[in-house]
Structures are given as C-alpha cells and as structure tokens.
C-alpha cells in the first residue's frame, strides 16, 4: 500500500474526532482506493448481524409491565392476531388486529374499564424489534383512532432513544402535541409540530 492509497490521512484524525462528537453516523471511515478499509467493513457487518438477531428476540413483557407500575395507570396486556414474528413480518395487518380471546377472558381483561371515559390510550407494541422497545420508540399519535384513519391522519415523534430524541424532549413534544390534538380535534398533516417555536419563545422570555 502506497501513501496515496492510505486510508483517511492521519492529519485529519483530529477533525473526525471533533466531528464525531456531533453524530454517530459512520463518517470519516478509513478507505482503500474507492472502497472501505477492512475494519469499518467488518464493523458494519457486526452491526447488521446484531440488528438481524434482534428482530427475532421476544419481548420481556413482565419487565415492561413492572416498569409501568409506578405510573399507577391501568395496564392491559393483549396479544395481536400474529402468532409469531415471521407471520407478522409477512402480514403486518395481523399486528394491528387483536388475537382471538375467549369471551370469558375478554370480560376479565376489559370488564373493569367498560363504561369509563379515557381521553388517551397508550399502546406499546413490540412491532419490529422487541429489544428496541426497552429503550427506544417511535410515537404515533392519532385523534379518534377508532375511526377509519389513514397515515395522513397521524403525527409521528420518531427516534425517541438515548442517541436520538432525549426522553425529556420527547415528553415535551408528546404533551404539547396531545394538547394540540385535543384542543383542535385533528391530528395528522394538518397539525404541524410547532413545539420548536415554543422552545424558542421560552428562551426569549
């Protein structure tokens, strides 16, 4: 390997070290010719292998429910119509449908809440990665979700996780958006997330 072929020159290492403080993106990767050097190539493969393994792991439901206890809210555990992860991947609509529950069980699950009025329901679904839901999530908000709805009627707060949108910021956005949805009686593309403006206004005051 000649100098010309050498991966990212040593003199730039300080730049990349500085840049990496601001993003976990794979920037400044060592290169050989036009291609990746061996180390970043294997790093990528490892990350993909772990992500693939995680797809088929199961949700630790007991731990999740125990963690929710402190909020003192009613927690209902239900199964979707998808019998396993593979079926869900091929037929995601099964994941949006309740599984078959014997009538007596259904009464035991839902009976205590019948007739009471709730203005918000939080649905936590293991969806595409049971591992991820322990510390990461995308939040989808829908006004009157029992009605026929399309994606245009949903708002999304994405990338809620330690490396993404911090929990406190996500909580702020969530509460702000929930209030706006209830006040205006709409959700989706007509309702823009203006919580940034509030944050800016707060700083000004």
């Amino acid at each position: 390997m000649t100098d010309e072929d050498a991966p990212v020159p040593a003199c730039d290492n300080d730049v990349w070290t500085q840049f990496r403080k601001h993003t976990v993106a794979r920037i400044g990767l060592a290169r050989s010719g036009a291609a990746l050097a061996t180390k970043p190539l294997l790093d990528f493969r490892l990350a993909h292998a772990r992500a693939r393994d995680a797809v088929y792991e199961t949700l630790d439901e007991a731990r999740l429910v125990a963690g929710l206890k402190k909020f003192d809210l009613p927690v209902v555990s239900v199964s979707s119509a998808a019998p396993d992860r593979k079926s869900y991947l091929m037929q995601p609509d099964l994941g949006r449908t309740l599984g078959r529950t014997p009538a007596t069980d259904a009464e035991a699950i839902f009976g205590p809440y019948r007739g009471k009025h709730y203005d918000v329901a939080f649905v936590i679904a293991d969806g595409l990665s049971a591992c991820a839901v322990q510390d990461s999530m995308g939040i989808y908000l829908t006004w009157q979700s029992g009605m026929p709805r399309t994606d245009a009627d949903r708002n999304c707060i994405s990338n809620v996780r330690p490396e993404g949108l911090a929990y406190a910021d996500a909580g702020f956005r969530l509460l702000h958006t929930l209030r706006a949805i209830r006040a205006r009686g709409i959700s989706g593309v007509q309702l823009k997330d203006d919580s940034d403006r509030l944050l800016i206004d707060d700083t000004r005051n």
Binding site: F19, I27, S158, N159, L165, A166
Partner: peptide, 18 residues
C-alpha cells in the same frame, strides 16, 4: 443524505462534509 436522529445541525454538517 446526511440524516441525524435529532436533526442536530452540527451532526448533519459533519455528514455533509464527509
């Protein structure tokens, strides 16, 4: 495509320069 999970301007700029 220099995306960043919180739209951090410095993180995005770093990816753009790369």
């Amino acid at each position: 495509q220099p995306n960043h999970p919180t739209d951090d301007p410095r993180g995005i700029a770093a990816s753009i320069l790369d």
